[in-house]
Nucleic acid binder design. Structure first.
Lengths: 189, 189
DNA sequence: CCCGGTTGCCTAAAGCCTTTAGGTTGATCT
DNA sequence: AGATCAACCTAAAGGCTTTAGGCAACCGGG
């Protein structure tokens, strides 16, 4: 009997692929075991339990997203940075819907703090430094962008824009222009 | 043996309460049966299966939300309407997190069309008629507002704003002002 | 080379959830 | 009172999760 060569890494990565193919809520130890042609119990040496598996996939997704965002941001500022950053989110969600869903998993505070989450917040702030906002408006703007990105991408993933025109992509482009213009010309309190 | 007096209506309503207390993903026929002190199989006369139960809870949530929104919108326009409508969403999500999560469930196109979903879209458009937007910008604006509302509310529900100041409520109020001002002074293409 | 330890994977078993098939009994209408 | 319908039940099959304990493949050292 040759071995399948499981490691936590490989298990989590396979879980992420499964999430993209079948949906994050269909990621189960049983299904993964089937894919590795291994008995279910064998996975439990690499992952504490089903919940832990999900958390690890979420952390992977957050890292991947942050890495892509960081790469996209390099050498850009202002509107360019905003558009590039936004594209990373939308593209990632479209390419990897299961991972994107995983990234939305609620983490306990400790895990969240050690995740790539804070990097995301920092990058968002870095973008806004290209616009002349002062606190607390910069924080409000971070939240506006975060909410819009996440909301748009998840509504699109849920098919919310499917049966109306124009296509989602057109609204996305136009709205980024609108937001850029809003940030440059931020209304006073 | 006296009967529990189940009906589809009561089962779905209890499911919605369970969702709010324990989370939408913990809504199972088993748990509901326990609450009604009834055998699991008995529920299957009132609900086709676990998925059907979830869908029915989602439809209930969408109706409730639309009803509240319609009531809030009555007699208001412009900024007032925008703020009142937004408040309905946020308050509903905070009062009924499980139902709000349910309302995000992906429905098949047929079910979605028969749901209260279209009413939501219509109300959003009604609000925007208070601002002088022309197509396709009105559609873009609908999507901006929808994305922002949903994004903000779900990030807040996920605890995303918990460990930073100012409080979410403050950003919410301020950002609604900002959006109102944006809509009144919508940038040209 | 082979021997011992580590680690990867297994069998077994218990517990819970879902779903279906078919039977019984309470409520209701005539 | 009898018939009918709906509400509820028992029984059973099948899947997922998790733990405990066992065997054997691999790796490093003697």
């Amino acid at each position: 009997m040759s071995r399948a060569g499981l490691t936590t890494e490989r298990v989590v990565r396979a879980g992420a692929e499964l999430a993209d193919e079948a949906g994050f809520d269909r990621v189960t130890p049983s299904e993964l075991a089937r894919r590795f042609d291994v008995k279910v119990a064998s996975l439990y040496s690499h992952v504490r339990n089903a919940g832990d598996l999900r958390v690890k996939i979420a952390l992977l997704a957050l890292e991947e997203l942050a890495d892509r965002a960081a790469a996209a941001l390099a050498g850009r500022s202002g509107r360019d940075a905003l558009v590039a950053f936004a594209a990373v989110y939308r593209d990632y969600a479209r390419e990897h819907p299961g991972r994107y869903a995983a990234a939305q998993l609620r983490l306990d505070p400790e895990t969240a703090a050690a995740s790539a989450g804070p990097r995301h917040a920092a990058m968002m702030r870095a973008i806004l430094r290209g616009y002349a906002l002062t606190e607390p408006d910069e924080t409000h703007a971070v939240r506006l962008l975060g909410s819009f990105f996440h909301g748009f991408v998840s509504l699109e993933a849920g098919g919310g824009f499917d049966h109306s025109s124009p296509a989602a992509a057109e609204s996305w482009t136009r709205l980024l222009d609108v937001l850029d213009s809003l940030l440059r010309d931020w209304p006073r309190p």
